[in-house]
Simulated scan of single mutants.
Amino acid sequence: MPSDPTTLPRSSARIARLRELAPGAGLAALGAAAAVGIGALLPTVSALLVAIVLGMLVRNLATLPPRVEPGLNFAAKHVLRAGIVLLGLQLVLGDILGLGTGVVLTVVAVVAVGFAATLLAGRLLRLSSTQTLLIASGFSICGAAAVAAVDGVIRTEDEEEVVTAVALVVVFGTLMIPALPLAAAALGLTEAQTGLWAGASVHEVAQVVAIGGSLGAAALSAAVLVKLARVLLLAPVMMIIAVRQRRVILAARTSEATRTSDAGTDDAPSLPPLVPLFVLGFLAMVALRSTGIVPLLVVDAAAIAQTALLAAAMFALGTGVRLSIVKRVGARPFALAALSTLAVAATGLTGVLLAA
């Protein structure tokens, strides 16, 4: 019978924890390596999207042993946060402000309108508040990474909601790769405008790169900069959600205390930090890069490490997408995802046209 980690010496407990995580973490590392390799062979294909798809295939075409689950869960949460922190080194505040007031306001409007419209539609569709919030974050900010970041703050009790949100990001974001350029051509947008629209409207950074890369270097640069501006808003949004979550938990504790006359219940959920640690790390990396003192060699190395970490996390998230679960959730999350996509895309297009 395995020893209880709480009764082991600290060093032994750490070794036991590493042994517990090793199988799943190793599988995530293999998935990330395969995804990065495919991405290197096919430059137009994003390693992060490949990682999610590989994870989905592994989960649904093979039977994974229970021993890999702890490591996969670790990769999907903690490795992802490390990747988000390193993502901050790719952001320079001066470059984002250089987009112009109109584009910056468009980015803020996309996130604000995207959240508001999704939360309202989720209420009308009678979806849970957590499911709606996860979809709103993924579709308004930066896809699966935002979904997982919000999950880390609100600590979703139903993992199916997280899995569903990630699956919807993959499905709808991938559909936008051919759909947005076709719509832009029909509307008579220039390549530069199409790149700006993609950055303002498409869910994943990788999906934005796929669209921008098909249009040319100028469109790709504009698309990525606008998308990274949306990624930057992940930090303040996480802070707002953390404050909101603390209020919800405190209200629940007050209600419980009033009902039971016992404010010290052991099973009360802990309060999330006002500012999650990984968000502080992300902001610190943005500030550091914006000083101009970070050598490009370090930035390039961080970009490679970030891709590897996020690919491992995306693979782990992909293994959480069970097709049986997606079928079971019904049509309402898909309807919400479609409405959220339309709201974000319409806001982004309006902003791009006004900023022109």
Score class of each variant (00 low, 15 high):
residue 27 L to S: 03
residue 21 L to S: 03
residue 353 L to C: 05
residue 106 T to L: 11
residue 228 L to T: 10
residue 137 S to M: 06
residue 106 T to Q: 12
residue 326 V to Q: 12
residue 281 G to T: 00
residue 290 S to Q: 07
residue 250 L to K: 12
residue 144 A to S: 14
residue 168 L to C: 02
residue 165 A to V: 00
residue 124 L to R: 14
residue 278 F to K: 05
residue 356 A to F: 00
residue 224 V to P: 10
residue 314 M to T: 01
residue 280 L to M: 09
residue 307 T to M: 07
residue 308 A to G: 11
residue 85 V to I: 15
residue 25 A to E: 03
residue 276 P to R: 06
residue 231 V to D: 05
residue 321 V to N: 08
residue 105 L to S: 10
residue 278 F to T: 01
residue 280 L to V: 08
residue 101 T to H: 11
residue 97 L to F: 14
residue 63 T to R: 15
residue 70 P to N: 10
residue 48 L to V: 06
residue 297 L to R: 13
residue 126 R to Q: 09
residue 257 A to P: 05
residue 117 A to Q: 04
residue 266 D to Q: 09
residue 122 G to H: 02
residue 266 D to P: 06
residue 57 L to N: 03
residue 15 I to H: 03
residue 113 V to G: 07
residue 50 V to C: 01
residue 113 V to S: 08
residue 351 G to P: 08
residue 285 M to D: 05
residue 292 G to A: 08
residue 64 L to P: 13
residue 266 D to M: 06
residue 253 R to G: 05
residue 45 V to S: 01
residue 189 L to R: 13
residue 9 P to D: 04
residue 230 R to M: 09
residue 220 L to I: 12
residue 31 G to W: 08
residue 236 P to Q: 01
residue 189 L to S: 10
residue 118 T to I: 06
residue 22 A to W: 15
residue 86 L to T: 08
residue 333 P to I: 02
residue 82 A to Q: 09
residue 240 I to K: 00
residue 246 R to I: 03
residue 226 V to W: 02
residue 340 S to M: 07
residue 64 L to Q: 12
residue 56 M to N: 05
residue 150 V to W: 02
residue 70 P to D: 11
residue 305 A to V: 13
residue 306 Q to P: 09
residue 150 V to T: 09
residue 306 Q to G: 14
residue 164 T to I: 07
residue 68 V to W: 13
residue 159 E to I: 04
residue 298 V to P: 13
residue 162 V to P: 00
residue 352 V to F: 10
residue 93 L to D: 03
residue 105 L to R: 07
residue 233 L to Q: 01
residue 208 V to Q: 05
residue 94 G to Y: 01
residue 82 A to K: 04
residue 196 L to E: 14
residue 306 Q to S: 13
residue 265 T to G: 11
residue 243 V to R: 06
residue 296 L to N: 10
residue 337 A to P: 04
residue 323 L to P: 00
residue 190 T to V: 13
residue 108 V to E: 00
residue 172 F to T: 08
residue 83 G to N: 09
residue 52 I to A: 02
residue 44 T to F: 10
residue 289 R to C: 02
residue 32 A to V: 07
residue 348 G to H: 11
residue 333 P to R: 09
residue 195 G to Q: 11
residue 194 T to Y: 11
residue 354 L to M: 15
residue 327 K to T: 01
residue 301 A to E: 14
residue 84 I to S: 12
residue 138 G to P: 09
residue 16 A to T: 02
residue 214 S to Q: 10
